[in-house]
Design a protein around this nucleic acid. Structure first.
Lengths: 350, 350
DNA sequence: TCCCTGTATTTAGACGATTCAATCCGGGGT
DNA sequence: ACCCCGGATTGAATCGTCTAAATACAGGGA
């Protein structure tokens, strides 16, 4: 009687370790050993198994390994907006380190939408990822704590945690102050802050730092505009609205909570025929690559995006390895203000 | 004797279906039924099981389901450059459709590097993803065929397949012709084509279409510049090189194989003090959002990025469902030329 | 009282890789 | 001639979920 090994779909699919073993005339245990501890297998046998693997085109089944091992080799990275170069730079950094640890990164885009974010978290948890790096919509979301309590390590990215998590962030209040001081020293007395949603701490911190400098100056008026999502389109919309204000009440400078907003805003100024920076000075946030390529090179608060991603992954690996005696850490970076033409008319194109 | 159910790490981790069953006083089969065919379970039992699930914080183990089912619910999407908005738009479209099919997208960045690409393909195959969407570095790569022959469906994205795959692409030769005709009609007689690597078909097709119009015109000189990666940095470098040429041999127009290159190139012109478009006309490719926000709004050949992603995912789902009687399909979209100020001095800022 | 029917639930393998205890075997030592 | 040693290999259990087949049970009909 002919024994059939493995699955038997007319179109032969990926063979399993069992078929490899059969063809090489050894047991599955030996094949597994060749795969995981080749040195304990006799050279001749090893060779035979490797030939069999090649001949059959065997590919390990990660699901099975993972099930057996109880832990997976993938890390989830949930960002607010993949279309924002800041986050792709961040992802770049995270992935670079993951690569060194033979780990796979799963990039998820929440689009600043708590529902999508939740969906991704659910998926990642079901996949039993070894950990999650996330720029959360709301870092007090009980789901995050629940996730951790159920055993999935979470590292907050671009967001300082107070309790319960590791986190990697940039001092957003300082960023706000840098922008504020710069605009006030340049002589502006009616300034707009644009960003949103205000419930996001990144945004509120930038605003807080900014507002602090404004208050200290005393005679400066601060206007606040909230947007739902920080993209180019929204920046353009707010820009049109502000350009339409009567010159007496229109701000002479705007600080936008990210560069996409700022670029959109800049476009709106151009369409409305307002000179930047003479009639409207602009400062953005993140200093993405496109900022300096803009119609008017954009002043921006720079964050070390790649470094953020890298550090976050570092903390996660640390937590996963240390396991029990792990203590959560907060890493905080400093932002830099990069002044370009959009906020400084003495400057020429670079 | 007290029987211990499930794992027993001091810090209790995710419970399995077994613990849920025990707590609810039913068998694992019943729990599984509640999860997958709730209607066949008596309401009272169902309720009891659901309570138990909630109380224990049970979360399905995707690895186990997957192992059992033999097929996973995730799709791999491998792109050449996540930092390029064209690809994030594409990913957006793919993900939107995936969401409707209760499928997860795993976004992978090959960075135009065959090694990284290969690494990602290996990982995805080990995960037994239900399929792979890829903008390949080289679509004749035997690995792709091997992948398919071992049972992982592959759909080529932004790249026409001749045989063996489904594909979704844009007519790149037409794109090249559109750009070529436009620049030649605008009177340019010394034109540069910049892109690379030339081994990538997207690039060579754009160049071929472009070159065809140049040849037809007869009296036009075409200069070709090759780059290794199409990013802002490389565009800037080539721009500096070209700006340094003596005016007599320097091209008066440049067609760049993507917008990142074009934006970098544009910056270099600005630095070198060359007027765009008067001394150097520029046409890019992809029409990313930043193109029209550039220092000089950029003319560009537009591709329906989101649609590409969406269609690719559609083809994949089709292939997965149809299985046996599936016939590979080639979907081809048409590009559009968007003319802006960078190639047309009669135009004012928009 | 007994059997039949249909609904509700349980049982018992898979799925593929890993791991560890158990076995096998050839050769060296006594 | 016998035993033991240690390297090489095998066998079986396990991870968590799903499903087909088996069983349990209650109620109705004869």
């Amino acid at each position: 009687m002919t024994r059939i090994y493995g699955r038997d779909r007319g179109t032969m699919a990926t063979p399993s370790i069992k078929e490899v073993a059969h063809r090489a005339g050894v047991s599955v245990g030996t094949v597994s050993n060749v795969l995981n501890r080749p040195w304990i297998v006799a050279p001749a046998t090893r060779q035979r198994v490797q030939d069999s693997i090649r001949a059959l085109g065997f590919v390990r089944n990660e699901a099975a390994r993972h099930l057996r091992a109880g832990k997976s080799r993938t890390v989830g990275l949930v960002v607010l907006d993949v279309a924002n170069p800041f986050f792709t730079d961040l992802a770049e950094g995270a992935e670079a380190l993951a690569y060194e640890h033979d780990t796979v990164v799963m990039l998820c885009n929440s689009k600043t939408d708590p529902v999508r974010e939740g969906h991704h978290l659910d998926q990642l948890e079901q996949q039993r990822v070894m950990g999650i790096l996330i720029t959360p919509f709301d870092s007090n979301d009980p789901r995050l704590t629940a996730l951790v309590s159920r055993g999935t390590p979470v590292v907050l990215v671009d967001r300082a945690a107070d309790r319960g998590f590791c986190s990697v962030s940039v001092d957003d209040q300082l960023g706000g102050r840098l922008a504020g001081n710069h605009l006030i020293e340049s002589g502006h007395r009616r300034i707009a802050f644009i960003g949103g949603p205000f419930t996001m701490q990144q945004v509120s911190d930038r605003m807080a730092g900014f507002a602090a400098t404004v208050e200290r100056a005393g005679d400066v008026e601060l206007q606040r505009y909230e947007v739902g999502v920080m993209g180019v389109v929204e920046g353009r919309a707010i820009g049109e609205k502000i350009a339409a204000l009567p010159p007496r009440s229109r701000p002479t400078a705007a600080f936008l909570a990210n560069d996409l907003l700022a670029l959109g805003f800049l476009q709106a100024m151009s369409v409305a025929g307002l000179q930047v920076p003479r009639e409207m000075a602009i400062v953005g946030y993140d200093d993405i690559d496109f900022a300096r390529a803009a119609a008017v090179p954009l002043s921006s608060v720079r964050q070390p995006a790649e470094m953020l991603g890298r550090s976050a992954m570092e903390l996660l690996q640390e937590e996963v390895e240390a396991a029990e005696q792990h203590r959560h850490r907060q890493v905080i970076f400093q932002p830099d203000l990069i002044v370009r033409e959009s906020s400084d008319h003495t400057r020429r194109r670079v």
